[in-house]
Simulated assay, not measured.
Amino acid sequence: MNWINSLVRPKIRDLLKKREVPENLWIKCPETGEMVFHRDLEANQWVVPNSGHHMRMPGKKRLELFFDDGSYERIDTPAVQADPLKFRDTKRYTERLKENRSKTGEDDAVYVACGKVNGNDFTAAVQDFAFMGGSLGMAAGEAILAGMQKAVADKTPFVLFAASGGARMQEGILSLMQMPRTTVGVQMLREAGLPYIVVLTNPTTGGVSASYAMLGDVHIAEPGAQIGFAGRRVIEQTIREKLPEGFQSAEYLLEHGMVDMVVKRHDLKETISNLCGILLKCEVELPTLEDKSPEAAGEADETTRTETSESDTPEAELKA
């Protein structure tokens, strides 16, 4: 066998062959155009280091960052009929579900978990925008209700990380029915006296913002998140006016009283934990007399003796 053909030529081909680079290796910042290495972005909680732009992040990672040590227990949610209306547009609804389940590894857009946050019990639900835009369907509505019922049963605060384009059109009226159903779940939390905290991420729009996402005790928005019902273009065409710059952004809504605070992603955990402590009126346990050390007890006895001796003086008797 000719050694040139068997050894030299294959090595030359390998040198000249174009190496394939994964598409998601570098991520571009939408604000500045800066290219960020995906591992650096993930290590910074999907916040671009220089610009501070908050990128969308996977729902599972939200749960890992929210719960202590990334440890939590997933809550089983009721199963629903996959395609109740036999809907089809450019492709069948069942095919879309299959594609999104394969892409995300989840059955639907909302999943619920419980665990510890700074040592306290919490229940949380996450809407994953990667699953059909986080749209609200029957499965998502059932998951949110299951999470709220779990919070009531365990007497824990309920935290919702909302990210959605609205109701799922492939389920029609059955999707819209989840808006009042989840509202009943919110009322259950209020009757039980449990905090309901909503974190509005980018984007939170449509039927989700028109129902449970705007019914929280406290509304927290991430910086730059788009929050509203209809899109900017639809509103401008309807009212035939130009909307102000930054309309429907988290900062604009904060300025106009639609959200309570805008909190950076790195500070969300501490902020939510502190808020729930205030809403639940958590009291700090003070030491009792039995818990005091002998040194502290001795100091207290000495103070008592001093006060008693001063009260026995003639001046004290004259004052009496």
Rank of each mutant, 00 (worst) to 15 (best):
Q248R: 11
E241G: 15
V234I: 13
V218H: 12
L243E: 05
V263Q: 13
M258H: 11
G224M: 02
I239R: 05
A250Y: 00
Q237K: 12
E255F: 10
K242Y: 02
V259R: 01
K264N: 13
G246V: 08
A210G: 14
G231V: 08
V262P: 07
S249T: 14
R232A: 09
S249K: 03
I239C: 04
Q237W: 07
E255I: 09
A221K: 01
A250R: 00
E251S: 10
E222F: 00
L253G: 10
D260N: 15
L215G: 02
G224Q: 04
Y212E: 02
I227A: 06
K242N: 07
I220W: 03
H256E: 06
I235H: 05
K264L: 01
H219C: 13
A225F: 02
L253M: 10
T238W: 10
D217H: 09
G231S: 15
E245H: 08
Y252F: 12
I235R: 10
G257S: 07
G224R: 01
G216V: 05
A221G: 08
G224S: 09
A225P: 06
A230G: 03
K242W: 01
D267S: 14
S211Q: 11
K242V: 04
Q226R: 04
R232G: 09
G231L: 10
F229C: 04
R265H: 10
K242L: 03
G257P: 02
L268Q: 15
E241L: 13
D267W: 03
E251P: 01
R265Q: 13
D260C: 07
D267I: 03
H219Q: 15
D217G: 07
L253N: 11
Q237S: 11
A230F: 06
A225C: 05
G246N: 10
K264P: 04
F229N: 06
R232S: 11
T238E: 13
I227D: 04
S249P: 02
L268W: 03
G246C: 12
D217F: 00
A250K: 01
I235T: 14
I239D: 04
Y252S: 13
R233P: 03
Y252D: 13
A221H: 02
A210M: 15
D217S: 06
Q248V: 10
P244E: 05
E251F: 04
V259W: 00
G224L: 00
E251G: 11
M214I: 09
G246M: 12
A213V: 06
L268R: 14
R265G: 10
Y252M: 09
E222G: 06
E241R: 15
V262M: 05
S211E: 12
E236H: 06
L215V: 01
I227R: 02
G224P: 02
K264A: 08
I235A: 12
L253H: 04
E255H: 13
H256M: 06
G216C: 11
A213K: 07
V263Y: 08
M214C: 12
Y252W: 13
E236V: 01
E222P: 03
R240T: 08
I220M: 08
A250L: 00
F247I: 13
V234H: 10
V263K: 13
L253E: 06
